[in-house]
Amino acid sequence: MIAVSDVSKTFTLHNQGSAVIRVMEGATLSVAPGECVALTGASGAGKSTLMRMIYGNYLAASGRIMVGETDVAQAEPREILTLRRDVLGYVSQFLRVVPRVPTLDVVAEPLLARGIDATSARTRAAELLTRLRIPETLWTLSPTTFSGGEQQRVNIARGFAHAYPALLLDEPTASLDAANRETVLTLIEEAKARGAAILGIFHDVEARARVCDREVDVTAFTPDRAA
């Protein structure tokens, strides 16, 4: 479902002496439907960078990034938008929303974007918020004022609202208490059971061991800085 082959990434800092920083070379991995693969490697090794390239948030310098039938490295913006709407979900570490929009609508939005009627979308959103223990009294408020852990759970609810065939998870269990961590791991297991291909970053070793089938160490894709 996700197939990355020989992907490289450079950053050119035009305003800092046009320094060219090579951050990744020869990145290759694949994730099959129903499989969860963990990206590992020290902080700064390029886990998030690789994930962002798969989502189309960073441009790959070379290589192929197939998600379903789409090569994200070559696709037109509108093809990536369609891919993100229907196929590829992403739970980032940060919640970015329009201020003042109620939490329930923030979570329902991916469904509304797919043309699902407002009532069904909100019902699904409510179900997820309940499972993730966001008190109903908060649903009408904007999540921008929530605590870090609450925002993280809203982000997860939003990422799981639609049953994406492919999912990218960046530290989904960070800053969660034991009960909510359990819920998130169950959501991941359910997604795997329905055939989703999942690529994740988990610093939580136990969580990784429980839900991930394989690990890919991105250190292997780090260019030799001395060269």
Binding site: R52, L59, P77
Partner: peptide, 22 residues
């Protein structure tokens, strides 16, 4: 420069866009 909004803002390629974003 043109592209997906989040890509242009998070990974700007042109010197001017980099200046604008930073």
């Amino acid at each position: 420069e043109t592209g997906l909004t989040d890509q242009v803002l998070d990974d700007p390629q042109h010197a001017y866009t980099q200046l604008l974003v930073s």
